[in-house]
Design a protein around this nucleic acid. Structure first.
Length: 554
RNA sequence: GGUCCCGUCGUCUAGUGGUCCAGGACAUCUGGUUCUCAUCCAGAAGAUCGCGGGUUCGACUCCCGCCGGGAUCACCA
């Protein structure tokens, strides 16, 4: 069991006696702050023992909030954290940060879990996977955060703030007008130095309040810390009195408190998060210290971005970019392994070489390097490159895997057609996939219908036949077209070898004063509805005489 | 506005003082691969290393200034 002596305390627990309220007032505040009670800090720390892991083992976590669709950046972060955790023999945790009940979207927790499963991001602990440090939904840990908040209150490092949104807005407006640094700090911390009498009055009036952190930092002083990716950092101390516990009926913490408490209790060894958190790191360090905890090892990485319409670079936006939604990638049918490979390449530039050199190895065998990750700046999503990865991945699949994947991704009439005659489907899907240079037509499973649909009569008739002719054969006279088809049928023998077949084609084309290209085009379009397909000879072989004859006779 | 992060071909990047008049990948273009494509192969084009100073025999690499882009300063995470 962990006791306070065993916990990674290195700074003296700092009491600020001058700001401590009387026991009576403190109790009154607590009664309002935690009307349903709270878990004593010591209790939490006894409940969650220190992890028994080797020195090298990393405890990593990814903390999405269930506020909408699953962002591809969450998958990116998940991939990185999962690799670092597991390749070090450590623990990978999925923690749901659902402390904002207003923004919560129903179903998004399930969406997160499902996305993690689909991407094979196997977390050792998380919702539905109790690992001894749960619960893993922050809303279910409310009483614990309250315990830490109470601890801070007792130490004079937290105070109730009854300021209304209007009060706050006015202060900021004034600060901006005076060209002062905006924010709730120092003299602008409205309730920081209120007397016990004033607090008592507000309490009596039943005014809602947030519990704020009492910062002791100064913007003029600077602190140093080392970022895992960015190296030595020197930033001003935090002096913001941020909210710790919200004022609504849920009494939930803000991210700041929740992060420090959870990552301490869960034993997180490295906190990876995106760059947007960089500016609040000084705050998190001060918060940790005020709780007598050793600050975490932070690593900040740049978020994935995208080219914006104005040509600028910007963060992937949930609203503007469909690519931001994992669902988009899944629906488009990019093979998940390919997406992971692409993301890994974004994280570590040396991945590409490794991937090429080890075509048969699992992605899990690649050792992700922290140093390389450091250099990765805001990578721009390059869908073309992703497609290249995807084509390559699909082409490398064994025939059996390829077949199964196509079936699995298909639906509706296409799926029915594929399943009607497995023998035929196997032949169709094997066209030009053998040998050293398998075809690379598909980058997304969703393209399969367009690529293979015409092999099946029911789809050919509805989706390919008519429009193909109109699109690709409009310049050919009907009689010429008919004559070409008839001529072909008169000499076509499926048993002919490809060379003989081609010779006959050439002769027939000459005969009709057509170029071989045009002659082949007529046959191709009539047979497939497309002007670009794999090898015609192979297609005919698979289709068989019956189908060829039927389609050319129309 | 304050603070912090970032700045090498269109894109992702290699590069930690000389081996870089900058290498690779994707994209682009050209040629070849006995029918069109997807490929594959060969080749080409594409970066005054954001700009300006300095340090140095020598800088993409170190220092300073500037500029540009981004983040943040919420009872959002």
């Amino acid at each position: 069991m962990r006791t306070l002596f065993q916990s990674p305390v290195h700074t003296p627990i700092c009491y600020n006696l001058s700001y401590m309220y009387s026991p009576e007032l403190t109790e009154r505040i607590i009664a309002k702050l935690a009307p349903n009670g709270y878990t004593l800090r010591q209790e939490s720390e006894t409940r969650y023992p220190l992890r028994q892991l080797s020195d090298k083992a990393e405890v990593m976590r990814v903390p999405p909030s269930p506020t909408g669709f699953v962002h591809i950046g969450t998958i990116y972060a998940g991939l990185i954290n999962e690799r670092i955790a597991h390749q070090s023999g450590g623990v990978f945790i999925l923690r749901i940060e659902d402390t904002d009940k207003k923004r919560e979207v129903t179903g998004s927790i399930e969406a997160i879990i499902s996305a993690f499963q689909k991407f094979d991001l196997n977390y050792d602990e998380g919702p539905g996977k109790e690992g001894g440090y749960g619960p893993y939904l922050q809303s279910e840990r409310a009483r614990m955060y309250l315990g830490y908040a109470v601890d801070l209150l007792h130490k004079g490092r937290a105070y109730p703030c009854f300021a209304s949104p209007d009060d706050l807005a006015m202060a900021v407006k004034y600060q901006q007008a005076k060209k002062l640094r905006p924010g709730y700090y120092g003299q602008w911390a409205l309730w920081r130095d209120k007397s016990a009498a004033e607090i008592t009055t507000a309490l009596n009036d039943n005014k809602p309040f947030v519990l704020r952190f009492r910062s002791e930092g100064s913007h003029d002083k600077r602190i140093n810390y080392t970022d895992i990716f960015k190296g030595k950092m020197e930033v001003p101390e935090n002096d913001l009195d941020v909210p710790l516990i919200k004022s609504d009926e849920f009494h939930l913490p803000t991210y700041h408190l929740a992060h420090v408490v959870d990552d301490f209790l869960m034993g997180t060894t490295k906190v990876f998060r995106s760059d947007e958190w960089l500016p609040s790191t000084a705050l998190h360090i001060e918060l940790s210290q005020s709780l007598g905890l050793k600050p975490f090892n932070y690593g900040h990485f740049a978020p994935i971005s995208i080219i914006d319409n104005n040509g600028g670079k910007r963060k992937l936006s949930k609203r503007k970019d469909p690519e931001a939604d994992v669902q988009y990638w899944l629906q488009a049918g990019y093979p998940i392994e390919a997406v992971k490979a692409y993301l890994l390449g974004l994280a570590n530039s040396n991945f590409e070489d490794w991937y090429r050199a080890n075509p048969d190895k699992s992605l899990k065998e690649f050792s992700l390097s922290l140093e390389k990750l450091a250099a990765s700046r805001a990578p721009l999503l390059d869908m073309r490159k992703l497609e290249d990865y995807a084509k390559d991945y699909i082409a490398r699949l064994s025939q059996e895997d390829f077949y199964n994947a196509i079936i699995k991704s298909a639906d509706g009439t296409f799926k029915a057609a594929l399943e009607a005659d497995p023998g035929y489907t196997h032949q169709v899907l094997a066209i030009e996939r053998t040998g050293l240079k398998p075809r690379k037509d598909l980058s997304q499973w969703s393209q399969a219908k367009d690529q293979y649909g015409y092999f099946f009569n029911e789809l050919f008739e509805t989706d390919f036949q008519q429009q193909g002719r109109q699109e690709h054969l409009s310049d050919i006279d009907n009689n010429v077209e008919r004559a070409a088809s008839e001529a072909f049928l008169s000499f076509y023998v499926p048993d002919d070898a490809q060379a003989a077949w081609l010779e006959k084609m050439r002769a027939a084309a000459d005969n009709q004063s057509l170029s071989l290209k045009d002659y082949a085009r007529i046959l191709r379009v009539k047979l497939t509805g497309k002007n670009q397909t794999p090898d015609l000879y192979a297609i005919m072989q698979v289709m068989g005489l019956e189908r060829v004859r039927a389609r050319l006779s129309v």
